[in-house]
């Protein structure tokens, strides 16, 4: 155990949770508005034999990314960061963001090419659904 003590001369572990505040998303005037999530995916890097297939898979990938964006906006993200130094010299530094949640009632608002090779998908959830999901902050996985 003593062997590891000098190596771990200074270790800092930080854990935090980013929350998105109020239960219902509102605009500047305080009116409830739908919550939007955006995701992007590159077509050329997708697996698939034909260009059509890659295009469809890219849309799917962009949708997953948009879902993640929505989940982050609804439930927040768990941020874990750790830095270590030995005798004042930085050894390691990493940041990890975890997102977990159940998204209900998301509908697709926009699917489109924003460049030649990049698809953009925008998803939207109604404010009352956001409020319902935020009331259950710990998602239940069955």
């Amino acid at each position: 155990m003593r062997k590891f003590v000098p190596v771990l001369a200074l270790s800092l572990l930080a854990g935090g949770c980013v929350s998105m505040g109020g239960a219902v998303p509102v605009d500047a005037e305080g009116n409830p508005v739908p919550l939007r999530g955006t995701g992007y995916a590159t077509i050329s890097v997708q697996p698939g034999r034909s260009a059509n297939q890659k295009q469809i898979i890219a849309i799917r990938a962009a949708k997953i990314s948009a879902m993640r964006d929505l989940a982050e906006k609804i439930y927040g993200a768990q941020i874990d960061a750790a830095s270590s130094s030995v005798q004042g010299r930085m050894q390691g530094d990493y940041v990890r963001a975890n997102i977990e949640g159940i998204v209900r009632g998301a509908r697709t608002v926009k699917i489109g090419l924003i460049r030649k090779d990049v698809y953009e998908v925008v998803l939207e959830v109604d404010p009352q659904d956001v409020a319902a999901m935020r009331l259950n902050p710990r998602p239940v996985y069955r």
Binding site: L70, Y94, A97, I102, Y141
Partner: peptide, 19 residues
């Protein structure tokens, strides 16, 4: 699949920035 995903989707995501 798309219709079902609009009803309920369990989402997990992680981003990691290393040294």
């Amino acid at each position: 699949y798309d219709a079902a995903s609009r009803l309920q989707s369990k989402v997990r995501g992680a981003s990691q920035l290393n040294t």
